[in-house]
Nucleic acid binder design. Structure first.
Length: 187
DNA sequence: CACCAGATCTTCT
DNA sequence: GAAGATCTGGTGG
C-alpha cells in the first residue's frame, strides 16, 4: 500500500477528486476503494468555504491532506480531505474491503451495497465523527493510498445541492455497483 | 420503485 | 425562522 504524497493534495479540488477515484481510503483499519467523490472549490457557491472561515469549517482553511468533518442535517457526519486552501473533496462512496465486520456493526446492516454508499453512511461505517475533524491523512489512523489498478473516472453533476448544480464535480468509478447513485440522475 | 415526513444542529436572513 | 454537501422508514403504485 503506497500512501499518496502531500503534493497530490496541494492542487485544485477538482483535479484531486478525479485522481482519488480508484485509490484506497482507510480509517483505523476499515475501508476500501474509492468509487465516488465530489469536489468543492474556494470560489464555489455550493462549498462550505464560500462564505469564509467559521468555527465549523476551519479545517477547510488549514493545511492539505487533513480531514474536514462536518455535521449534515444535524444528524450525520461527512468526511472530506482538504486540498488547496478553501478546497476539499467529499468522500461519497467506497467499495468496502477491509474491516467489514466493524463496518457492519457500526451501520447495523449487512448489505454491502448500502454499507458505504453515501457520505453519511460512509462516515458511519468508518466510525468517523467530529472528533476526527482536522486529523491528518498521514498513514496513521487515516490513510489514503494509491490505487492498485488504473481506473476510469466519469465526471457528472453533484448531488443534493441547490447552487452550482451544473458544475460537473462529482466523479464516479465507471460501472461500480457501490455508488450512492448512478451518474446522470438528478438529486 | 417513487414519493414523503421526520430527525436535529449550524449558519444565515 | 428557514435551509442545508442526508438517511431511514413509512405509504402507495
Amino acid at each position: 500500500m503506497r500512501p499518496l504524497p502531500l503534493s497530490f493534495f496541494a492542487r485544485g479540488a477538482d483535479a484531486v477528486a478525479a485522481d482519488l477515484v480508484g485509490c484506497g481510503l482507510f480509517v483505523r483499519g476499515a475501508g476500501g476503494t474509492i468509487v465516488e467523490v465530489e469536489a468543492y472549490g474556494a470560489e464555489d457557491p455550493a462549498s462550505h468555504s464560500f462564505r469564509g472561515e467559521r468555527v465549523a469549517n476551519r479545517a477547510m482553511f488549514g493545511p492539505p491532506a487533513h480531514a474536514y468533518v462536518y455535521r449534515s442535517y444535524g444528524i450525520h457526519w461527512c468526511l472530506n480531505v482538504v486540498c488547496r486552501r478553501g478546497e476539499a473533496v467529499l468522500f461519497r462512496a467506497i467499495e468496502p474491503e477491509a474491516g467489514r465486520d466493524a463496518m457492519v456493526v457500526r451501520r447495523g446492516l449487512e448489505d454491502a451495497r448500502r454499507l458505504c454508499a453515501g457520505p453519511g453512511r460512509l462516515a458511519q461505517a468508518l466510525g468517523v465523527t467530529g472528533a476526527d475533524d482536522g486529523r491528518a491523512f498521514d498513514g496513521g489512523e487515516f490513510v489514503l493510498a494509491a490505487g492498485e489498478r488504473p481506473v476510469r473516472a466519469v465526471a457528472c453533476s453533484r448531488i443534493g445541492i441547490s447552487k452550482a448544480r451544473e458544475t460537473p464535480w462529482r466523479f464516479v468509478l465507471e460501472g461500480s455497483r457501490f455508488l450512492s447513485r448512478p451518474p446522470g440522475v438528478r438529486a
